[in-house]
Design a protein around this nucleic acid. Structure first.
Lengths: 343, 343
DNA sequence: GTTAGCACTCTCTTAAGATGAGTGCTAATT
DNA sequence: AATTAGCACTCATCTTAAGAGAGTGCTAAC
């Protein structure tokens, strides 16, 4: 168990290091307002804190920096429920000031603004399209050989694919088919479309449509909806400007991890609902060793839709980013709930 | 005017430096097969080449590296019409092996494969959507308040926007309006849609549609088509692995230039039709000082559609990348011409 | 015109000393 | 018993010096 004084010292060390990115020594600590005892006392306390694993040295005679355990303690116990700075608050409100009707627009704008405010990298996972429900299917012939199939979901998301048009299928038949499919499949989650077509609708179609086989083969391909969430970025290269990343090797690793979107989105998706902070190796990813990831989920009503995340150095401004993400995710949930539930 | 021997030496210097990224000295040059005279002779020739501005030293007693002028001469005069390596050729052919019906798919795949083959960064500008022609307009109501407008173009490109649905407009009226618009606007380039609506169709609409004003205002917004080409990347972070970019400052500049898509696409678009090579400062961009950009346009029939570009260090393998881009752009043009002109 | 030879230049590496920030420990003080 | 002053010690960083190696420019010989 830490004494009050140890906690105070830990707090000041973390705050100072977050601010200046330099190891903190006993002498400079003793000069802080909050601290009323001598550097020697601090040295003793720091020795204990180090033994307990909360801080560490970069070399034998350096000042201390927080360890991952230290950051963890700081995040869990030392972050007073922080007020958001009013300037920050104003900017956030401006995201949601104008009425927007498209989820992607909101998501993109949030990502951009968050990264600009913090100079960290923001990552937003959109909702998985596969859970949307079919609102309307449409087939638009382009020429004798090809046509575009369009799927509109209940959230206004549009998927489309252009395909080869089997010869021997007449336009009127296509229309008939589209009508049947619309009637039977409206409201079905996209992920279930294919199964539903084969199980329940095949019989009906076969009765009404010539060339049934050709058409379903083609449509089956079309209904292969991308299974993953869309991913949006803000400030992808912001990390290059952090003083923590002067080592080209680290930069390389980090950047290629960010490029590798699948892994990143998996890493983010794993996090639990609500706010979550993963520090350094807690992310189970070697490229993330010196990074922290803060995630917040957003939802419509009670249903989780996606995740907003901020990626920064372990030394990131938790006390600012956490309330920032809290409010953005809450606002986003509110806007989206209004958008999709009232309608 | 350069003597044959000077040209030979320049050629070998450039080839060697492209390969090993190290300044080339007279002694190592004299050991090359192609070279049958002594290092002293080479030194004399190199002194002349340097005076003429084709090569330069990194410091007083270093070997020589090509200057931008040297690369320029190399590209203009020393690149024998190069055969593409058969391995490369096979990979390229595989891009176009399977039948694809969507331009974006082809473009994306090309970008990815080009970057993987070369370990440079590939950038592909898609065609500007605004020049596509309207094939079909569709409005799909989502709920009482919102609807999604969908525009399908003759190339199978789909644009969509979700908008607020003015109260007091009945579904049947919307349908009537959509029908009129489809009839009158089919085949019109997207960029002209708005003007056409106001000039020619307004009168007709006003006669048939109640709430005409509300609807056109909303649709006007919807028809604001993004004016720029879509841009696709392959291997965005490949440049980090080039030995030329060990300086973090350069990396920063380059990366943020790449992130800044508008400027980049402008820089690429400026280039003339066909193949173009811009070396270092020829790109008029400080972040590109140590980079070259090779661009190739692709087209449908005679109409230029877009540009494929490869971004690498000035020290890039021109002799490989140029034929690579030539063939990819030609193949792409062929596929797209077949796709869009026969139909 | 070409080449061998040589003095010279500059980078890079290594080592050594000087500096300074910071520590750990001990003994004195409160 | 807790705190603090004092001091020896450690280590990164900076500066300087020296040596090695790659390469050049110039001169004189071929």
């Amino acid at each position: 168990m830490l004494t009050d004084r140890q906690v105070l010292i830990l707090q000041v060390i973390v705050d100072d290091f977050i601010r200046y990115a330099l190891p903190v020594g006993s002498r400079s600590l003793s000069k802080k307002e909050e601290i009323s005892f001598s550097s020697a006392t601090i040295r003793n306390e720091m020795a204990d804190l180090e033994e307990l694993g909360f801080i560490e040295k970069t070399h034998t005679s350096s000042g201390r920096i927080p360890s991952e355990k230290g950051y963890r303690y700081y995040v869990d116990h030392l972050l007073a429920p922080q007020e958001l700075q009013s300037a920050d608050l104003r900017i956030i409100k401006s995201i949601f000031a104008e009425r927007i009707y498209e989820l992607e627009k909101i998501v993109q704008k949030s990502a951009r603004i968050l990264s600009e405010m913090t100079s960290y990298t923001s990552i937003v996972l959109g909702p998985a399209v596969k859970d949307n429900r079919l609102r309307r299917l449409q087939i638009v012939p382009l020429n004798r050989e090809t046509a575009t199939a369009i799927i509109v979901t209940d959230t206004g998301h549009v998927e489309n694919r252009t395909f080869h048009f089997p010869s021997g299928v007449s336009p009127s038949e296509v229309e008939k088919m589209v009508n049947i499919l619309n009637e039977k499949l409206s409201g079905v989650p996209l992920v279930e479309l294919n199964a539903k077509i084969y199980k329940e609708i095949a019989a009906i179609l076969r009765r009404h449509i010539q060339n049934y086989d050709l058409m379903t083969e083609v449509l089956g391909e079309t209904f292969k909806i991308p299974s993953n969430e869309k991913i949006f970025f803000g400030g992808k290269t912001n990390m290059l400007n952090q003083p923590d990343f002067t080592d080209l090797e680290k930069v390389r690793g980090l950047m290629s991890m960010i490029e590798q979107e699948d892994g990143l989105s998996e890493m983010i998706r794993q996090n639990p609902e609500g706010i979550s902070v993963k520090i350094g190796r807690e992310n189970n990813n070697s490229a993330m060793e010196n990074c922290s990831l803060i995630t917040a989920t957003y939802s419509v009503g009670a249903e989780k839709l996606g995740t907003i995340a901020m990626l920064g150095p372990t030394r990131m401004e938790y006390s600012r980013v956490i309330p920032l993400l809290k409010i953005v995710s809450a606002d986003m949930s509110a806007v989206l709930t209004k958008l999709y539930q009232n309608g």
